[in-house]
Design a protein around this nucleic acid. Structure first.
Length: 221
DNA sequence: GCGACAG
DNA sequence: ATCTTGTCGC
């Protein structure tokens, strides 16, 4: 029993993957389109057997107290090598396997990587949001594209990430004294809400608890 | 042609 | 992403 409709094939060439991204980007909703957020999920992918097997982890947390509600792990043969701009084709198949095992789907997905802060506005968070239909946000530890000015030093402060004349994300100081993180809307979430939801999940560390929990599970530490 | 380049 | 110990700083 599959929870999500297959929008396209996964065993595609880089050129086909880029064409799929161009086709899908038109369906993205880049403004708030969600109800009460009771749960938030962290999504991350790790690899086993020299990278031949992808292992995805999804950890659902209670939005109010960040307590773990449930978690799932999904595996699948790694489809293709890492190619900047095509990360979702390498990692999403395993993520979908993990999502199928959840008792209940979360209200929002926080993915490791970018949302629309991507050359074709189709980073892994946006792609996953479109496939699942769930609101999604990209939380990256580093930059893929875009430029930005100085990042405020205080916790919670941020500056726009820009590409040409478009604001594609926020460079956020999630914690004082450490490198900022890159937050961008994935699907059905506007930038301000994306930043707010991410900060809702940040406690005493640079990365939100969603990411930390998923990272831990995906890397089997 | 020369860099840049999520995880 | 992954390979990996100690080490600097609050």
């Amino acid at each position: 029993m599959s929870r999500f409709p297959g929008l396209h094939r996964w065993d595609v060439s880089p050129a086909e993957a880029r064409a799929i991204q161009q086709r899908l980007r038109q369906r993205l909703i880049l403004e708030d389109d969600f109800g009460p957020v009771a749960t938030v999920a962290g999504v991350d992918v790790g690899f086993e057997d020299d990278g031949t097997l992808a292992r995805a982890a999804v950890v659902v947390l209670d939005h109010a107290d960040l307590a773990v509600v449930e978690q799932a792990v999904g595996r699948c043969p790694t489809p293709m090598p890492y190619i900047p701009g095509l990360l979702s084709f390498r990692e999403i198949p395993a993520v979908l396997a993990a999502l199928e095992d959840l008792e209940r789907l979360p209200d929002v997905l926080l993915c490791d990587g970018q949302g629309i802060a991507h050359p074709r506005r189709m980073g892994i968070a946006s792609h996953l949001g479109l496939i699942t239909g769930l609101p999604s946000i990209g939380v990256g530890k580093s930059r893929l594209i875009g430029t930005h000015g100085p990042v405020p030093a205080e916790r919670g402060g941020w500056t726009p990430l820009v590409d040409g004349d478009e604001v594609i994300g926020a460079v956020l100081r999630s914690r004082e004294g450490v490198k900022p993180i890159y937050v961008s809307p994935g699907h059905r979430v506007g930038l301000e809400s994306a930043v707010r939801l991410v900060m809702d999940c940040v406690t005493r560390y640079k990365l939100p608890e969603t990411t930390r929990a998923a990272d831990r599970l995906a890397s089997a530490r």
